[in-house]
Design a binder for these strands. Structure first.
Lengths: 169, 169
DNA sequence: CGGCAATATTTGAAATGTCAAAGGTTTCGG
DNA sequence: CCGAAACCTTTGACATTTCAAATATTGCCG
């Protein structure tokens, strides 16, 4: 069961002793790796900026679209449910990083956009965030990073084609 | 705005799919892929078994250790915080899938173990779960699965070696 | 013009997630 | 033994998460 991994923190134990089905093993390894890195990023975001990961994600989307985004669009891009976006934007607005406004044309819609303060705040976080990732992946060869980017893309495409709800964007 | 404006210079590309630093792109792709598959698994677990993903994870650990596990050990293996394990086990116990007991030797400890009903329940879920994964990854070549397993292992090892808290024990 | 389906967001209940602080229980040094 | 340190779990405050139901608004069709 020991392969190249001695970590005690390891979801992969679910698989039958490491001899299990390859797809299952791959999934468990992806999941535990992502969880590990997420927790590290979250820890640093919290310690250095007092922010959470979902907040960072949401701000990142708004940073790309200076005109702002409708909440439904934010929901799709961040892969967060509608109801969740409401609460996230509420808290970010309370902190002064975001403002909500309803366009004249369609009063069903709420558009969120960054405030100047939000832009400054996110800029600092983004720079740090990128450095953290280079640090975390410091032992991974550039060629491996490149290969992984493509192969994980294949996995993502496959998953997208086999959703019970039908392919989503 | 003239002189001391160095805040938002080359960060436009952050969080974007097209260009930018390879490590960042890889991370974002890993994250979105994992999120996508997690959501699919969660949907099916809920629809077919009325279970949640964290519950499934926890039961999987107990299934492998028929003698039961201390809550702290469960916390490490599932990568869930201590406080969270308490609530998870509480709900699973209320549903009759798990029992808690305190060993005679050390009354600080709580050990959780599967009930017979819990074993039956988990067996069924595990079988289905494995099938779902083969389905979701149906378009990924076996050779790619194998390559990915190794390369993601490298990423995980690198992350583990660069945790701000020091390597996870 | 009236009504109804489609669209967009909010709300509410329940579960999960974090961290920090508080509770008991051992264990060990003096 | 006694008291302090170490250990294990629970609790509490908050944020995030999902789904489903409720609201609100628009657009279209008859």
């Amino acid at each position: 069961m020991a392969e190249t991994d001695n970590s005690a923190i390891d979801l992969e134990i679910i698989a039958q002793g490491g001899a299990g089905k390859p797809e299952l093993r791959l999934w468990l390894r992806m999941l535990s790796t992502t969880k590990l890195i997420s927790q590290e990023i979250r820890r640093r975001l919290r310690a250095e900026f007092g922010a959470t990961l979902p907040q960072f994600d949401l701000l990142a989307q708004l940073y790309r679209e200076r005109e702002g985004l409708r909440l439904g669009e934010l929901s799709k891009r961040t892969m967060v449910t509608n109801g969740n976006v409401t609460g996230l934007v509420e808290r970010l607005e309370a902190d002064g990083f975001v403002i909500r406004e309803t366009p004249d044309g369609d009063r069903r819609v709420t558009v969120a956009k960054l405030t100047p303060r939000g832009e400054t705040y996110f800029s600092a976080m983004a720079a740090a965030h990128e450095g953290w990732l280079r640090d975390i992946m410091a032992d991974v060869e550039p060629a491996t990073v490149s290969t992984l980017l493509g192969e994980i893309g294949i996995v993502k495409a496959s998953a997208n084609n086999h959703l019970s709800a039908g392919p989503a964007d």
